[in-house]
Structure formats: C-alpha cells, structure tokens
Write a protein that binds this DNA or RNA. Structure first.
Ligand SMILES: NC(=O)c1ccc[n+]([C@@H]2O[C@H](COP(=O)([O-])OP(=O)(O)OC[C@H]3O[C@@H](n4cnc5c(N)ncnc54)[C@H](O)[C@@H]3O)[C@@H](O)[C@H]2O)c1
Ligand SMILES: NC(=O)c1ccc[n+]([C@@H]2O[C@H](COP(=O)([O-])OP(=O)(O)OC[C@H]3O[C@@H](n4cnc5c(N)ncnc54)[C@H](O)[C@@H]3O)[C@@H](O)[C@H]2O)c1
Lengths: 210, 210
DNA sequence: TCGAATTTGTTCAATTGATCACAATAATTA
DNA sequence: TAATTATTGTGATCAATTGAACAAATTCGA
C-alpha cells in the first residue's frame, strides 16, 4: 500500500488540475504542475506513473485522464455517505459548505445532545446520540466527523465505534484512543496555527527574502 | 533546522502531556507517551533528546520539564497576535473558540468585504480590507488566517502579503501562489475527509480487526 | 525527411527519518 | 550490599522517499 503522503499529494494535484482546467488547459507538463503544487516535477512524474497514467513524451499529460485516475483511486464512483457528531460552530460550518457535496461526500445526519439544537431546522436532521446505531446500521455508514468539545470527545468517539463507525475525522484537541481497526485523522487547528507562527518566525530569522 | 514533522510531533506530545498532567501524573515514560500519541518510544526519546530534555534513567521524564521545553521551542513567552481575513462560517467558529487564547494566540482583528458583517458585533472588530495595512503595520502582525471563498482567496492573499503578512493559514481549496519569504499552511477539510474515507475502506479491505 | 528540442519514464544515488539494539544508569528488592 | 530490573540516551542499521540524471520517445521546424 502507498503512503499517506502519496494520497495527500494526489488531492493537491487534483486541486491544481481542476483549476488549470477551468482556466482553459487540457494538457499539463510535470514541471508546470510542479510550479502549482510545490512538489518537484520528478516526484509528480513518479506519482503519475504509480497511478498508471501515461503521458505523451514531449506532449505532457492529459488533465482529464489524470483527474479520472485520481478519482478512481479514491473510488469516487458511488457517493460516500457519512455522519456528523456535534452540531456546534464547526459542525454548522461544515454542513453549510458545498465542497463536500461537490466531491460526492454526503453528510446524511448529525447528532447532538442539546435538545434546543435538535429542534432547530438545518439542511440535515439532528438526532440525539441514541439514534446513532440505527442510522449507522441502516445506511451502512463507515465514517464520522467528530466535532464535540474536548471533554466529551473520547466518550462520543467510543459511542460512534460502538455503533459501527470505522473512520473518524476528529476536530477535538484530544488524542483519541481507538482499536486497531479504526482509522482516525485529527484536524488540530490550534496546532496548525502555532506551526505557521513558528515557521514564519524561523523564516524571518534565517533571512529568506524574495 | 528540524523537519516540520518534528514540530508537529511536539504539539502532539504537548496535547497528551497536558492531559496526563490533568489526570494527576507528574512523570511519564517514553513508552507510555508512545501509547498516547502513537509514535514509537524510541522516536519520542530522540525527540526529547533533541529538545535537550533530560530524563532520569529508570525514572522517566518530568512532565512539566517537557512542557516547558516545548513551549520554549515555540517561543511562547510573548503573546502572538494575528489577524483573520473572512468572517464567514469558519471565521466565526474560530473567533469563538477559546483554545487559541489558551495557547497565547490572540486574534486582534478581522477583515471582510461584506458591510453587513462589518456592522455586526463580534468579540473582535471587523474591518474592510482597506484597513489591513494600518493594522498589520501598527501592531506588527506577521500571520493571518485566510477564510474567504476560493474564488477570492488568491487576491486576498496577495493583499495580505502586500500589507506585510509573512505567514498564512489557508482554508480555501486553492494552491496559493506566494513569494519565497511567505510561509503557507493549508487546511483542506474536504481532502482530510476524503482521506479518512479512503483509508477506512482500505482497512476494511485488508481486514484489520482488533 | 532529418535533426533539434523537449518532455516523459525509470534507474540510481543520496538523503532523510525511523527503528533497533544495547550500554549506561538509576531504582528496587532480597 | 549485591543482584535484578527497568528505563534512558545514542550509535548503528535499516527503510523509505526524494531528487538527479539520462535514455527513449515524440513533436516541431527547417
Ligand atoms: N471552532 C473552532 O474554530 C475550533 C478550533 C479548534 C478546535 N476546535 C474543536 O472542535 C470541536 C468543536 O468545536 P465547536 O467550536 O464546534 O464547539 P461547540 O461548542 O460550538 O459545539 C460543540 C457541540 O457538541 C455538542 N455536544 C457536546 N457534548 C456532546 C455529546 N456528548 N454528544 C453529542 N453532542 C455533544 C454541543 O451541544 C455542541 O453543539 C471542539 O472540540 C473544539 O475544541 C474548534
Ligand atoms: N465551512 C467549511 O466547513 C469549509 C470546509 C472546507 C473549506 N472551507 C473553505 O474555507 C473558506 C471559508 O469558508 P466559509 O464557510 O467560512 O465561507 P463563507 O462563505 O461562510 O465566508 C466567507 C467570508 O469571506 C468574505 N469575503 C468574500 N470575499 C472577500 C474578499 N475579497 N475580501 C474579504 N472578505 C471576503 C465573505 O463576506 C464571507 O463573510 C472557503 O474557501 C471554503 O471553501 C470551508
């Protein structure tokens, strides 16, 4: 199996390629994509080779072919349905964003312990956690977004796994403990920002100027 | 200089250590921290060694000492002040979150082109972009969060850099073009989720069960 | 049609990063 | 006190990833 870095790069390529396509291009050279994505041209060629995308020597790669290969890699034939736990600020921001739909990801339901939130009208239904198993089983859901406060994150995580969830995108600043057969990815916004601050200071220090 | 992976691991350690401390521990063994963070014990020891944190042989490491070293590494003496561009769903979620303050990061102002939003009352002032240079210069701001729609991301990014910003945490699904002396980190929520979905399917396939 | 220019595809080398393994050392127990 | 156990700290090894380089192929122009 390929590294997670490879997978991540593919999504970066996709982003640039859809943009280039919108701008009117049909073909792309590895070094052009390199400029867009800040990955080296030879790494890009190697990645495309792993994806079994063939370019034309001296002609570059066909953008649509790459995009199809990337989407195929992620199995984007069927629509992926997921759920959301925690309908707070982050949860609401996410369900209002159209990008998930655009990439065939559908958030079909959310869960929140706050009855006031349950009563509100959103684009998707809000249930109490007790309803979770029913939804997960009936709709064969594998993946959940976890956007509850830190102090309840582990407990809600446990419940999700209990209900059958096998993949979690976690926003809470907590290192979740999960069994081996569950995949967790953490979005640590505070950490990300702190890293930006740190690296920005470093750049200043080491005097990189354009 | 150290890799960004090293920097990222430090923040993971910090998360677990603050948790362990809250639970009542004062000391920690490398393999205990390994269990919390899913990094190997030997890697953790090497990281701590690089941080010049000394443990006691057979006695483990003092948690406070590690935490101080990590905070020192990130220069957490002074409070870091940053700005926010785009007061939409993500922007609002971020300014309402207390975690940034807790880590000495202060978002002092935000910018949005929507006059209706500018008139609303938030915990921080909302200015039109024209005010940006003044704020950035007067308060010596280096870092910005970019949370505007994709189609205006590059343009707002350019303006920020024009005003003197040197580090950007970008939420828009765009590969920003910036000069060499600017550091950019991207939060790609759709990509993150797609990766979770992908890796969850893979785990299913390769039959990992706990 | 031939040659020059350009870009892919892949091999190879080098670097980086992580793990292994163990000596050094400290604590514990008998 | 001596033996034993547990843990750090680090040098050596191993693996993975990246970048460089170049042959093969294709296009373009003369
Ligand atoms: N908002 C941000 O910008 C931001 C930044 C970094 C991290 N985070 C983290 O993301 C998570 C969500 O953030 P937020 O701003 O949306 O928080 P929030 O407080 O706005 O929303 C949390 C929601 O979870 C619900 N909830 C609480 N306990 C629950 C439980 N046991 N079961 C089901 N639902 C429960 C609450 O009712 C609330 O609606 C938090 O852990 C936060 O630390 C948020
Ligand atoms: N909401 C999510 O969950 C989510 C998920 C993935 C990615 N994103 C991305 O994050 C970014 C922000 O998302 P959001 O949901 O907050 O969007 P949003 O539409 O709610 O907010 C965008 C804000 O930016 C302001 N804005 C637009 N153009 C501007 C300009 N030129 N200068 C200054 N301000 C401007 C708008 O007035 C608005 O207030 C978008 O690029 C979006 O694609 C969001």
């Amino acid at each position: 199996m390929y590294s997670t870095d490879f997978t991540k790069r593919l999504l970066t390529y996709r982003l640039s390629l859809t943009h280039l396509k919108k701008v009117g291009l049909n073909d792309v050279y590895s070094h052009l994509l390199a400029g867009e994505t800040s990955h080296s041209a030879s790494l890009i060629r190697k990645d495309l080779s792993r994806l079994q995308v063939k370019g034309k020597r001296r002609g570059g790669y066909d953008i649509d072919t790459i995009l199809q290969a990337i989407n195929a890699y992620f199995g984007n034939k069927e629509r992926d349905r997921i759920i959301l736990a925690g309908m707070g600020n982050i949860g609401k921001a996410i369900i209002q964003n159209k990008d998930f739909e655009k990439h065939n990801i559908q958030i079909i339901a959310s869960f929140d312990l706050n009855p006031a939130i349950q009563r509100k009208k959103f684009s998707i239904p809000v249930f109490p956690m007790e309803k979770c198993r029913e939804i997960v089983v009936n709709y064969k859901i594998d993946v959940a977004i976890l956007a509850v406060p830190a102090f309840s994150a582990q407990s809600v995580c446990d419940q999700l796994i209990q209900c059958g969830i096998r993949g979690i995108l976690n926003f809470a600043p907590v290192n979740l403990k999960v069994p081996d057969n569950v995949y967790v990815s953490n979005v640590r916004l505070v950490d990300e920002l702190q890293q930006v601050i740190y690296h920005t200071k470093q750049k200043r220090k080491h005097g990189e100027y354009s």
